[in-house]
Amino acid sequence: MIIKLMKQPQFVIGMLFIACLLIFSFYWPSLLDVNKKESLKLLDFLYDKDGKVIGAAPFPPSEIPPFGTDLAGKQLFYQVIDGAKYTIIIAIVIAFFRILFSVGITLLNPKSNFSYLNDIVQATLYIPTAILAYLFMNALLVKSELDSMSFSKLIVLQALILIGIGVPPLISTFSREIKTILNRDYIINTFALGSKKSYVYFKHVLPELSTKLFLLFAQQVIQSLILLAHLGVLTIFIGGSRTLMLGDFLDPMPYNIPLAGEWAGIIGMSFSKLQAAPWVILTPLSFFAITIFALNLMVQGIQNCLETNKT
């Protein structure tokens, strides 16, 4: 299957892009030959040669190329590059566990209809996923403020919420798929010859599902990326946030800074200042769009592969 996928140009291009982005994101300080601390520091004011202030944050892209700085004066380019690894890895982890859990739960009892889950799936048609996630995340954040939670525990709980939201619809697709496979003649024969259930699942059902699993995985990564962006806009940050006091002594401005530097955090942090500094929002958003496009290319490649398999 993998060899076949490698022959699809779209898949290879998408894959290469994501891989390059990840590698660049991990090793940018050495690749660009800059100091990581130095390039991510706050840059409140811009001085000329004589030490006079000639500008204050946020700086537009024309003043500090290539993408300008955010409201606190951090360079956006480095922030976005540094955040790429967190964003993509979070999305991949969420998608992976969604698939893993839903296949696992379906295989526990492939004959059942999961009627309660179907109820939830019916209801989620009318409630946007972002609102659903917000409900849970908000309750969690209030709780974490009341009795203090460690950073890692908060991240695990948040990831569990994001995983759990995607599982019910996936289970209903998988249970349909697996039922049709289990009704095939050769599977019935294998059972009649006395093979164990686990043997059939691992030897016959999962290999038959494998390409489909890969397709669903890529689609789930896209969906979790979109969900992350939406949650960022709703100022729900993965890993919680720290409140920083900006502004002067008489007029303090509370300013939420997300702890993990992923793209959704950059968006959410300054979304209310969209009119004042549109580039702060547009830069991470366009990176979201490019990443999703690369993933879509991969999806297209897998779909082409599935079609050639059929004919």
């Binding site: 009627s115 309660y116 179907n118 109820d119 939830i120 799936v121 019916q122 209801a123 989620t124 009318y126 409630i127 659903l132 409900l135 849970f136 908000n138 309750a139 969690l140 209030v142 709780k143 009341l146």
Partner: peptide
Amino acid sequence: KRLRSTVIGILIISVLPALFFGIN
């Protein structure tokens, strides 16, 4: 039938956050 499952589903969803993380 559809109505029943929709109502039950929405009920479950609206109760779950309070169930997991307490009413706050």
